[in-house]
Amino acid sequence: MKIKLHRDESKECIESISEDCKSTNFTLTISDNGVSIPEELDIEDLDSLGFQLIISLVDQLDGEFELKRDNGTEFTMRFTVIEKDDFTQADLKSHECSN
């Protein structure tokens, strides 16, 4: 089993929020070379708590999820974190409410 977390920092940010911020893109990959998950199995419809947690986490992070089923199984989650320098959470909420 392999677990990799890759980080890419960027200065791109949503202009309407703040110019003094940076975004960081993360890619989390979990893979193994064992028996892969069958193609006919839709992981989003499984009753497995593990898969439900993964899907829920990706949704909460407004991320993307990819599953590769060749030569084992590989899960990839991609998400972005925005860091605001001069914004507090209260400032952000008041900004969202005013729009």
Rank of each mutant, 00 (worst) to 15 (best):
G50W: 10
K4A: 10
N71I: 06
I54T: 13
V81A: 09
E83P: 02
N25E: 13
D32M: 08
V35E: 12
I17T: 03
E64V: 02
R69V: 04
I43S: 01
D32Y: 09
F65E: 05
T29S: 13
D86Q: 06
G50P: 05
K22Y: 14
D62Q: 10
K11H: 15
F75Y: 14
I30K: 03
T73S: 07
I54M: 05
K11L: 15
D59S: 11
M77N: 02
D47K: 07
E39I: 07
C97G: 00
S31K: 08
D47W: 11
D70T: 14
T29Q: 03
V58H: 00
S16Q: 14
I55S: 03
L57Q: 11
T73E: 03
D45A: 08
E15V: 09
T29M: 13
F87V: 00
D20T: 08
I30N: 04
S16N: 13
P38C: 10
L92A: 13
F87R: 04
T27C: 13
K2M: 13
L61T: 06
E96T: 04
I43K: 01
F26Q: 06
K4E: 03
C21S: 11
D62V: 07
D32A: 11
F79G: 01
I14K: 07
K68P: 00
Q60C: 10
I14V: 04
K22S: 06
K84E: 02
T88G: 01
I14P: 06
H6Y: 13
E19M: 09
R69D: 03
K11D: 15
A90H: 01
E39Y: 09
